[in-house]
């Protein structure tokens, strides 16, 4: 494992910690898209199907369990917790799941490495992860002011993608027979989605203003 991959995993973990911090300490999920969180839960559920059958490393198994556990608990908090769910901005979080799920599934049926249930679902999870942030970005645009924790949550998620991209470039040059066009394709789309957000994130940070995305 290289340093870029590790940093990517850790920023991914940081994004989840920031979100849980907001939910646990402030008891608020204001500005967080439940749609995006549900899509991430689906991403991890379909990607880590082999968690108990294929052993890679203790690190991998533990991280997979953390991602699965936290993503489903975040969804539970936003839907069921007696105070947290009251802060959910339901009226602005209107993006439909199936607009993203259906095309990703159809694409995974056509573009995959092998036509097996396991492989198609794994490919589906990569395509879906690439676009799962879209409902969150739409909600950010509709929010008048984005609070710091929400802004930092999306920032860490974007940083994770950036580091994974550098990791793939690094692995491409350092490992033999490293052919992974599905990961590349999905990864580039996913990282590109954050470019706009990063522009406004750094702009607000530089000017010491509250983050606001233009509608």
């Amino acid at each position: 494992m290289n340093i870029f991959r590790l940093t990517g995993d850790l920023t991914h973990l940081m994004s989840i910690i920031v979100l849980l911090l907001k939910i646990h300490t402030i008891k608020s999920c204001a500005g967080i898209s439940l749609k995006t969180q549900e899509l991430y839960a689906l991403v991890f559920a379909t990607r880590y199907l082999d968690i108990f059958t294929t052993y890679i490393s203790l690190y991998n198994t533990v991280m997979k369990l953390i991602f699965l556990g936290t993503s489903f608990s975040i969804v539970w908090y936003m839907r069921r917790h007696k105070t947290v769910r009251l802060s959910y901005d339901k009226n602005n979080d209107t993006f439909r799941h199936y607009f993203l799920v259906l095309p990703c599934f159809l694409l995974a049926l056509v573009l995959n490495n092998r036509f097996t249930v396991r492989e198609v679902l794994w490919t589906f999870s990569l395509y879906l992860e690439a676009v799962a942030i879209i409902p969150q970005l739409v909600l950010l645009q509709r929010s008048k002011n984005v609070d710091n924790l929400t802004g930092n949550y999306v920032f860490f998620l974007g940083a994770y993608r950036g580091f994974y991209l550098i990791n793939w470039i690094y692995r491409y040059f350092t490992e033999n027979h490293y052919r992974r066009w599905i990961t590349w394709m999905a990864g580039i789309v996913q990282t590109a989605l954050y470019v706009d957000f990063f522009y406004y994130y750094f702009k607000s940070w530089k000017n010491n203003e509250k983050l606001k995305l233009p509608a």
């Binding site: 082999d50 890679i56 991280m63 066009w181």
Partner: peptide, 10 residues
């Protein structure tokens, strides 16, 4: 790997 996408990443 076997020439496909590696599964060692999260």
């Amino acid at each position: 790997g076997e020439g496909g996408d590696a599964k060692d990443e999260l």
